[in-house]
Amino acid sequence: MKVMQLLPELNSGGVERGTLEIARALIANGDESLVVSNGGRLVAQLEAEGSTHLTLPVHKKSLSSLWQIRPLRKLIQQHRPDILHVRSRVPAWLAHFALRGMPAGQRPHLISTVHGFYSVNRYSQIMTQAEKVIAVSDSVVKYITDHYKNCPPQDIVRIYRGIDPQAFPHGYQPSAQWLNQTFKDFPELENKFVLCLPGRITRLKGHETLIALVQQLQQQYPQLHAVVVGGADPKKAAYLKEMQNSIQAKGLSEKITFAGHRADIREWLAFSDAVLSLSNQAETFGRTALEALSVGTPVIGWNRGGVAEILSNIYPQGLIEADDQTALLNAVKKHIDAPQPVAPVTMFSLKDMCDQTLSLYRQVAQQ
C-alpha cells in the first residue's frame, strides 16, 4: 500500500508529530510512505525513518497557493498513491482541485483528519469532504456532527491521538544530573510543591487563572511554587511582559517561574507534583495532560474538550467544572494536603492510533 500525507510544513506541533508517527508505522509495516509539505526541520528525521518527502509550497493561506494545484496533481499522477491523507485546510483545498482534474479511475482514495475546532465556514468545511474523516476525539466528532450536516455520521471515524508509554513510563523520575542542573538554574524550586502549567505562552492557556490561584494559596501554602513550561513566540512578547508585570505587582515574583521553551518536557512533567490544564478554549485532544498522567503525575483540568475525555477515563478526580475557580482552588489544596496516586495508563497508546489508522487505510483502499 502506498500512502501520501499532505500537510503545510514539517516543523513542530501535533499535526506534524502525528504525520511522522503514521509514516513510521507504514514503513514498519512494509508499506510505502510519502509526505508532501513545504519542508521544515522534521524532514531529516522523516527521511531517516524511511519515508520520501516531496517539497511543495502548500502552506500559504493565500490565493497564490492555487498555483500549486497543477504541480500537486503531477506529483499524485507520478507517484500514484492508494491513499491521499490531508491534515490541514489549505492542502485539503489543493487536493480537492488537483483530484477534480484527474480521471475518476486514477484518483487515490481521500482521507482527512480534523485536528482542530476550526472556525465554522465554507473554508473549513473542506476537511469534512473525504471518503473517511478521522476525528481525534469524541469532542471533535460532536463538533463535526453539530456544524457540518453534509458529512454523513458513518463517514466519521474517531481515532484518538496516542503516546508511546515507553517514552513516558509510569513512575518515571528525572536523573540526579537533571535535578542538579534544574536546582542550579532554578534554586527557588528546591523542596517545593511544584505546580506546572505546560504550554506555549498565549492568552488561551490560562496563565491569568494560574496567577490568581497562586495569589490565593500563597499564605496558606508557603511551599507552593508554580512553573510555566513553554516558550513565547516573538509575537507574544508583549503578553509575556504584561503577565510578568502583573506577577510583580501582586508580589508573586518569588512564587512563579517561567522556564521557557524546553525540549525536556517529560522531565518537567515527572518532576512536578501536579500539572494544570486551564485552557480557555476546549482542546481537541490534550497530549500534554496524557503525558503527565502516563508518568504518574496528577492532572487537574477543566471539564471540556479532549482533556476532559482523557481525565474522565484515567484520572476523574482531576476533572473540575470548566472555569469554576473555587473548585480549582479546592482541588489544588487537596493535592497539596495529600498526594494523589495515578494508576498506570492503559488507554490512548500510540500503537492503537497507528493500528487503527492503517486499518482504515486498508479498508478504504479495498473499496
Rank of each mutant, 00 (worst) to 15 (best):
H147G: 02
N191Y: 08
G251S: 10
N330P: 01
Q248D: 07
S51E: 04
T297N: 14
G101P: 02
P316F: 02
S359W: 04
M1C: 02
Q220I: 04
E208T: 14
H115R: 06
A23R: 03
K236C: 00
S64G: 05
Q363E: 09
P108I: 06
L56S: 05
S12D: 07
D233Q: 15
G251N: 07
F117V: 08
I256A: 00
R107Q: 13
T128H: 11
V120M: 03
V275T: 05
L276D: 12
R87L: 11
T297E: 03
F348V: 07
N121D: 13
A167L: 15
P234C: 06
C196E: 03
A249Y: 12
R80P: 15
T209G: 08
G116N: 14
F193I: 12
Q166M: 14
A270L: 10
P153V: 02
N280W: 09
R200P: 08
T288P: 13
Q216W: 07
L278A: 00
Y361F: 13
T202R: 02
I126E: 10
R161I: 01
L56M: 05
L10F: 06
V36Q: 12
E49S: 13
E190T: 01
L350A: 15
L10D: 12
S137R: 00
Q325F: 14
L110A: 07
H261A: 15
H261N: 13
I27H: 03
I126V: 13
T182W: 10
D337T: 11
Y118I: 08
L99A: 11
H79Q: 01
E47C: 06
V3G: 02
S62G: 05
I336R: 13
A263R: 06
T288F: 07
L311A: 01
M127S: 01
P152H: 00
R161K: 09
G286Q: 02
S139G: 14
M1I: 02
I83D: 01
F97E: 09
L84H: 05
H147W: 11
F186G: 07
E208L: 10
L189C: 04
S272M: 05
G301A: 13
L56D: 07
R89F: 06
L66C: 05
S64Q: 03
I83T: 01
I320W: 11
Y123R: 11
L195I: 13
A292F: 07
T284Y: 03
S51V: 04
N245A: 13
S253I: 00
G101E: 06
N330V: 07
T55V: 12
C151R: 01
K351S: 13
A167T: 12
F285L: 01
L6W: 01
M353N: 08
S119Q: 15
A322D: 15
F271M: 04
P165N: 03
Y361N: 09
L217G: 14
G296V: 06
K142D: 12
D164K: 03
F348Y: 10
A331D: 11
